[in-house]
Design a protein around this nucleic acid. Sequence first.
DNA 1: GTGGTCTAGACCACG
DNA 2: GTGGTCTAGACCACC
Lengths: 120, 120, 120, 120
Amino acid sequence: MEYKNNKPIFLQIAEHICYEILGGIYREGERMPSVREYAAEAEVNANTIVRSFDWLSQKDIIASRRGMGYYVSLGAAERIRQNMREAFFQETLPEFVRQMKNLGITGEEVEKQIKEMNDE
Amino acid sequence: MEYKNNKPIFLQIAEHICYEILGGIYREGERMPSVREYAAEAEVNANTIVRSFDWLSQKDIIASRRGMGYYVSLGAAERIRQNMREAFFQETLPEFVRQMKNLGITGEEVEKQIKEMNDE
Amino acid sequence: MEYKNNKPIFLQIAEHICYEILGGIYREGERMPSVREYAAEAEVNANTIVRSFDWLSQKDIIASRRGMGYYVSLGAAERIRQNMREAFFQETLPEFVRQMKNLGITGEEVEKQIKEMNDE
Amino acid sequence: MEYKNNKPIFLQIAEHICYEILGGIYREGERMPSVREYAAEAEVNANTIVRSFDWLSQKDIIASRRGMGYYVSLGAAERIRQNMREAFFQETLPEFVRQMKNLGITGEEVEKQIKEMNDE
DNA sequence: GTGGTCTAGACCACG
DNA sequence: GTGGTCTAGACCACC
């Protein structure tokens, strides 16, 4: 896994875990890999994983059971989907439109570009 | 001017200046406000403006003339437009599409949402 | 280390680091001393080192990894060598020749002088 | 006339005047253009010329006569030539050789490059 | 008056 | 502990 420099690694990992949950790699109610396992896999410091897990806990996506590790919460997938849709429509999309306006880019241009991306 | 917390102030200012150049507020070949003037206007420390100006200099958008201030470089507007369009099509757009796919959001939904945004 | 007065300290340090990389003191992929360590060693303010490192980053000679320090980029030594050779042949050498011509100094004189320098 | 950014303008102008004296444009004992004339010609602030003239005065290359302007000193050309030769052999040349060594550039390479420069 | 550099110190996010 | 940012203020060279 590679990390971008403009975003905290622990957030990138948290987001990645969300996609893993959405993709069924970790299922609701099941146990997550231990912090140290995940740290080894992600090739980062264990503290970084702690922060990722902590962040996910605050979002009710996973939950810790003392001494037993972290477990995927019930309803996690649906909650993730809701959060992401909300973020998309309230942040990503408005910013996207703002940039289009500022740069004078039309919807047609965007559609054309998307088609080209798909062709590659 | 208000500053967001997730991005360095000096970068937000630099970007803002780019938009001012695109908007014709500062024209090519003309002199920029002095560092201290701009610092007062933007309500930040002069060193912060120095950093913004320095960043813009490295992008060939403005250039300093010894003891006389900073001047907008020739071709700055076009260069800004190119840089921004490139960033839009190579970073923003692919990321936008990636999110749409991941969240199962269709083009129709996006269009509908944009119309609602315009109505407000 | 001693600093000349006609050139910013942060640039002298950056250049010095380049020579250290060329000399194998810092190798590609390896971690640089921390900003504070280097500041102590160079006996300057940490911010000055930040600027040197920042300058080197923009030249793709080193790169920062969040919270872990700066690392020498791959290909850094070769890139430095290229940059320096280019600067030598496109700036230093023409200026050198220009001065020779203006002062009526011949190649023989130069060679003779170099030999004397070596003898000392 | 164009000015480089890494050297004070007043020094560039002073040096330029030296070459003008060496080239016989201003002859020993003759009057220099007035500060304002020269400022207009060089397209810089008059104070800048004042500094250039002042610098040349300290080197005994020109001298002011109260209310009458600046005159080229007797022996100026010879003095300039001496100063420049000294600077060349004590500063430029050692620095040039130092760079050659650091970059592993041989005398043959330099000669070859000089020939190419002449061919253009 | 202009920018340029350096210092000092604080605070923050990150790992 | 790491870098990153911002502030504050000083001093300098230059125009």
